[in-house]
Design a protein around this nucleic acid. Sequence first.
DNA 1: TTTGCGGATATGTCTAGTCTTATTTGAAAA
DNA 2: TTTTCAAATAAGACTAGACATATCCGCAAA
Lengths: 237, 237
Amino acid sequence: MTERDTIPASGKAAYITEEVRRRIIEKEWRQGDRIPDEAALAAEFGVARATVNKALQLLADEGLLDRRRRAGTRVAVNPVRKATFSIPIVREQIEAAGKSYSHRLISQSRSPLPARRAEQLGLSPGEVLIHLRAVHYGDRQPFQLEDRWINPRAVPGIEEVDFHHLNANEWLVRNAPYLRAELTFSASNAGVRDARLLDTEPEQALLILNRTTWNDIGPITAVRLAFHPGYAMSATT
Amino acid sequence: MTERDTIPASGKAAYITEEVRRRIIEKEWRQGDRIPDEAALAAEFGVARATVNKALQLLADEGLLDRRRRAGTRVAVNPVRKATFSIPIVREQIEAAGKSYSHRLISQSRSPLPARRAEQLGLSPGEVLIHLRAVHYGDRQPFQLEDRWINPRAVPGIEEVDFHHLNANEWLVRNAPYLRAELTFSASNAGVRDARLLDTEPEQALLILNRTTWNDIGPITAVRLAFHPGYAMSATT
DNA sequence: TTTGCGGATATGTCTAGTCTTATTTGAAAA
DNA sequence: TTTTCAAATAAGACTAGACATATCCGCAAA
């Protein structure tokens, strides 16, 4: 048995998190096992109970531990792990890849909402919203196709904005913070128009990201993003 | 101006989180603004500074606030919001949808690692790993196609397991907890074999989830999941 | 004008303690 | 045997205070 690493003066909670994670990975504590309670761990590590609490809460959020009052803390039997990905701003995503960003507005209009979108937004079909279609380019290569509906009632001031030279994503991010968002990934075959705009072949499989956001007034926007073939969206734990 | 909601005795941190979120959404505090410091908010809400700290840290993790020592807390200018989705166990996912789960092992063998997978796992091409292919069904309809490589060196005991009647996903989840995972979403056109196994047409767009996991010994497994057409993976904020 | 330094400041982190609350467990009552 | 109830327990939440640390800002020296 090697000597225990010394506990740093600052970062004790992080140290405990890692140590507990290690004990689980190395099967010192097995799935379903009850682990020592907060008071016992606090004594073992020579820290306050609040510090242990912080460390264990983090692992519980991750899905590695199950914690219940009075019942204690157990190593999760079916660790339902969570993954997080950040929702990037297209421009930043493209520029982070070292490419030069540009975009082209295909259409901007006030149109009646089609049924599918109405359902997504929780509004009535036929209601008139702002409809935008745009393509985002990296080094002049099409990267992402955007099809967006915006609810002007949830976003005062949107009616006056001209998106020919302004990116809708960025404008909304800065001017219409949301309370809640829903997003889904799916795949679909490129239509003829999609293929032309993305400079690919019809029937090519495209990764689709649908996102709808709400604030306290109501739905803000529903957007369908189709990515250029080959693009992979990545997430980490 | 309506009377401020009374602060609950328990859940003060949650109350403050929501109140700060509301002030941002309703533009009382605008993007880029410096907000009052922890001590001031603690005084305003009549709580300890640690409680305010907990509330603000949560919003900073969400990406709504930028916090820096000495510089204070600001409303994020480009709120890079994060979304989380849980990585489900196929069986639970199917049973949660009210369907009956079954699975079929197509092949289980020890095979040399192809180049693409070797790169994904960080191992040498040609190294011999366990290769599994299986289909997961909901109510006898194919739902997911699994193509998995497992590194036996990282998972002692795996060699003896027969996956004909046991789901590899579940066995690994319970017996090989991971430290780190990487996952990517992409789309690809169904090949002839994919199409047959998923009961669909060749060239149909499929949502692909690639996942690789590591523990302290090394890479555990790399898996490619192809979903039945029409399936959408959803996440929330 | 620029650079370097020191003090001020806001967040980061921890402690030792209190009180709350969900849940379990065991004992008593039906 | 089953139900009910009270005590015990472990996590959840908070407080008041302390110290650590990154970094901003102004002032002085180069």
